[in-house]
Amino acid sequence: MLAVKTNKPAQFSEEALAKAKEIIARYPEGKHKSALIPILHIAQQENDNWLSVETLDYVAQLLNLKTIEVYEVATFYSMFNLNPVGRFLLEVCHTGPCAIRGGEWLKNYLCEKLNIKPGETTTDKMFTVKGVECLGACGYAPMMQVGKYYYEHLDTPEKVDALLEQLRSRVDFKHENWVV
């Protein structure tokens, strides 16, 4: 998947910048490239949960890397979103152990309810549904990740509906800072 250009400069708050510098300093001298993945996570938090070309270029500059080194990494890992996503990214596990305990049902139910296909975003830009591989919660299926946390045992329409309502009501929502 190719990264998308927006002609909008990357956002990086003072705080985020300070955190990025602190992370770079953690690694042995000359090994600042090790900080790339954590800093891409921060960049994503700061930029509506996805990475545009501008954001990737900004990170390259910040870490003094060639842009290709950053593109290579951003395109390899599934947690980096290279296209805009909804405010809430619903990442439903669809791998075997979940699939036999309602994982397939959950993905289909969400898509039906929100009237989108996996990978798509609702027109109000509120939700994106994405099927993901095993999240390490196989015994608590069906489940999905939303932001920082896992939501497990989502085995009835009532539970899923309640969760969607709860998410919808979070008007003050900001992408959680979790990279410490």
């Binding site: 993945i37 891409l40 996570h41 390899f76 890992y77 947690m79």
Partner: peptide
């Protein structure tokens, strides 16, 4: 000890 995070890749 440094705790380092990945980004989704089995």
């Amino acid at each position: 000890i440094i705790i380092h995070c990945g980004a989704g890749a089995y």
